[in-house]
Nucleic acid binder design. Structure first.
Length: 333
DNA sequence: TATTTCGGGAACACCTTGGG
DNA sequence: CCCAAGGTGTTCCCGAAATA
């Protein structure tokens, strides 16, 4: 008994790298700590070290002596390293579903009695991202996801496809709705003809619903799992905030996805429609290249999927390509 | 005939512009 | 400064049309 006190034992909390179970160990110096620790944690002694859990500082004898009691340490075996709790985060994020379940459980229990709004926000955001059911597709596999959705939709992809279709349908509706504003009866008739052509083409391409349908191989805007990335504001090459979302993951993400916009780079109402009407008024310039306007209005050629923050509602000030407005006149030989 | 799909209209959110 | 108008988008609801 006396000898223990004489040795001025230090009490520490020791754990293996990447694990949360802690063991209380008393030791007078690092050598003793390693010897006891390796035995308790059942790891080989050879090449082992201890370091601070918090920031990964390796602990030598001098440093050990000055540590307060109950300090949190990590026992490293040969070849392992520890950069502090940042390592825990990367270990957790890069790990298996088993760890995810544990993390979800921990985050939930922390959240229940967390008072700070900032911490609650961080925890709930974390949960939001961890609780991912994106691998399930059918209604019976993830009924929560389908809450409030018409029973006719049997799969997530079906619903997402429909969601995209209806956005595109809305664009056509707006184009069509402009018809009464055209003064000249001749131009109005021409315009109606173009709208009809566009409608026929949209029916063939199923209103480009494939953009949101993760089952589609080509032309889909998301990954096989359903991840969409923000393409950045209309005047940017990419999104500096790296916004991303997986509406297939859970109900909340699905709802949140509705705040993401398909932004017309060249604006539909301010530019495309007026340019089209104007071009139809100049019959002498040639036959209208309505397919070009179709691509601007309804296809990825001119649509960017953006997070609401990257959706700039200012005037884009971009004109249609004057070389594409009319069909190329074939030169006579 | 019953069910599913479509499409029009209203409502909503958020933003910019411009005038009193 | 505030507020209305007009722009970017979205969803929800319900009746008609299409389909099984």
């Amino acid at each position: 008994m006396f000898r223990l006190f004489n040795k001025k034992n230090k009490l520490v909390k020791l754990r293996r790298r990447g694990e949360s179970t802690k063991y209380g160990v008393a030791a007078a110096n690092v050598k003793e700590l390693l010897s006891k620790g390796c035995s308790i944690l059942k790891v080989p002694l050879k090449g082992s070290r201890v370091c601070l859990y918090e920031d990964g500082t390796e602990v030598g004898d001098d440093y050990f002596r000055r540590l307060p009691d109950n300090v949190e340490l990590v026992l490293l075996t040969e070849g392992q390293c520890w950069d502090g709790f940042a390592s825990d985060i990367s270990l957790l994020l890069g790990s298996t579903n088993r760890h995810y379940d544990l993390l979800i459980k921990s985050a939930k229990s922390l959240l229940t009695d967390e008072q700070s709004q900032k911490k609650r926000k961080i925890l709930s955001d974390l949960l939001q991202n961890l609780e991912d059911n994106s691998e399930s597709e059918k209604r019976e596999e993830d009924s929560d996801w389908f809450q409030g959705i018409d029973p006719r939709f049997k799969t997530k992809s079906d619903y997402m496809k429909y969601n995209c279709e209806s956005r595109v349908r809305g664009y056509l509706k707006e184009v069509d709705g402009y018809t009464p504003n055209i003064q000249s009866p001749r131009v109005r008739t021409e315009y109606k003809k173009v709208v009809t052509n566009m409608l026929e083409k949209l029916k063939v391409t199923k209103y480009n619903g494939c953009y949101f349908d993760r089952r589609q191989e080509s032309d889909c805007m998301c990954s096989r799992e359903g991840w969409f990335s923000c393409q950045g504001a209309f005047d940017q090459d990419s999104c500096s905030s790296l916004h991303s979302i997986n509406p297939y993951g859970n109900r909340e993400s699905r709802i949140l996805f509705s705040t993401w916009n398909l932004d017309h780079v060249i604006e539909k109402k301010r530019t495309i429609i007026p340019t089209l009407v104007d071009a139809l008024g100049h019959r002498s310039h040639g036959e209208i290249n309505w397919e070009y306007f179709y691509r601007l209005l309804f296809t990825r050629e001119n649509l960017k999927l953006v997070h609401i923050v990257c959706h700039k509602k200012t005037v884009h000030d971009l004109a249609c390509d004057s070389g594409k407005i009319y069909k190329k006149v074939k030169k006579r030989k």
